[in-house]
Design a protein around this nucleic acid. Sequence first.
DNA 1: AATAGCGGCAACCGCTACCTG
DNA 2: ACAGGTAGCGGTTGCCGCTAT
Length: 265
Amino acid sequence: MSWGVMAGQLAWGGLIEEGWRKGPWTAEEDRLLIEHVRLHGDGRWSSVARLAGLKRNGKSCRLRWVNYLRPDLKRGQITPHEESIIVELHARWGNRWSTIARSLPGRTDNEIKNYWRTHFKKKAKLSPDNSDKARTRLLKRQQFQQQQQQQLQRLQQQTQHQQPLQINQLDMRKIVSLLDENEDKAPSTPQMRQEMAPNAIYPNTTEEHGFLYYNMFNVNASVPEASNEDILWDGLWNLDDLHGNVGVACETSKASMQNLVAPFC
DNA sequence: AATAGCGGCAACCGCTACCTG
DNA sequence: ACAGGTAGCGGTTGCCGCTAT
């Protein structure tokens, strides 16, 4: 017996890999899986396949249930509201789709991942980076990390009840600092922003926060200026590409992000 | 009308984290 | 502490339908 065959036999569910059905699920398979979960609950996916009489491995059953059959799933298009949350959380956490999905009830990580790739990634291609801009961002990244460390140390000395707001503001400043090279391309004062997007939300605050919120929420607002939009997406996407560490650096403030997102839910 | 190209989405794959004995 | 099994995650692939030529 070859090692390949042995590995197959030891795969998920402990059954022989050969003989598992693959590809699109049929209505009958869906019905069997739904009925099984209704009777026994989800979990123990390796045995679900066998008990439900499905020729699918456990991994496939879990995926089908989680991404498609779960009764609490939302159907239909991602709303502009959800989109803005996705944008915001992706800027903070990067490609941590399951984390992002937890903030969007009824949406799956797979759905959000697909949505991001088809709707947003292409935007990066529209405004290809050049090396000068890349260098500038790299410098800013280094400054970012230094300041992040210093300020986190300072924050640790502050009282606990003040901490969430302080970290929140800190993170927003950092993101803004990475975006501000485009500042001349977008309105920077509250008056200008108000003129261009009277319905946009500018919570709480400082000039910088307002600028960021202008950029983030105006993507879906009533100002169809492709240039500004591209600038924003370029900026956010490059945050992701060049600053994988941003997500890590911001890990400490997940709680504050929850506070930020909560009002939208 | 035919078909090439593209976008959207479901599903698969490989890896890692977690759990349990 | 360790190993094996299970669950979950993110990246990738392939199919299908729509649109432009």
